[in-house]
Amino acid sequence: MAQVIIPTPLRKFTNSQARFEAAGNTVQDVLKALSTQHQGLKTHLLDENGELRSFVRVYLGDEDINFLQKGATPIEANSIISIIPAIAGGIV
C-alpha cells in the first residue's frame, strides 16, 4: 500500500499518526481515502470542488505532483506521498 506522510500541524486530525497507508491507483485515490478516514483533514487539504488547496503541496517521493500528472499521477504499492504545507509570509 502507498504511504502518506502527514505534516506535523495536521496530525491533530489523524490522532497524532505521522503515517497513513491506503491502496489506490493515483495520488488522488489515496488522498481521498485519507480525507474520508480523517474528516477533519478535508478542509485543510481540499477545496469545495475537491481540488487540492493552493497552499498545500503534494510530493510523490522527491517530485512535486504539479510537475507530474497532479492528482492523476499514478502510484505504486511502495510509493511515499508527502503532504507539505506552503510556508510563507511577511510584513505585508
Partner: peptide, 20 residues
C-alpha cells in the same frame, strides 16, 4: 519583520497552518 512590528500580517494569516 525588518523595521516593522512583531504582529502577523494578512499574508502571514492566509498561509498559516493549525497547531504550529
Amino acid at each position: 519583520h525588518p523595521s516593522h512590528p512583531a504582529i502577523p500580517s494578512e499574508h502571514d494569516l492566509k498561509q498559516a497552518m493549525p497547531w504550529f
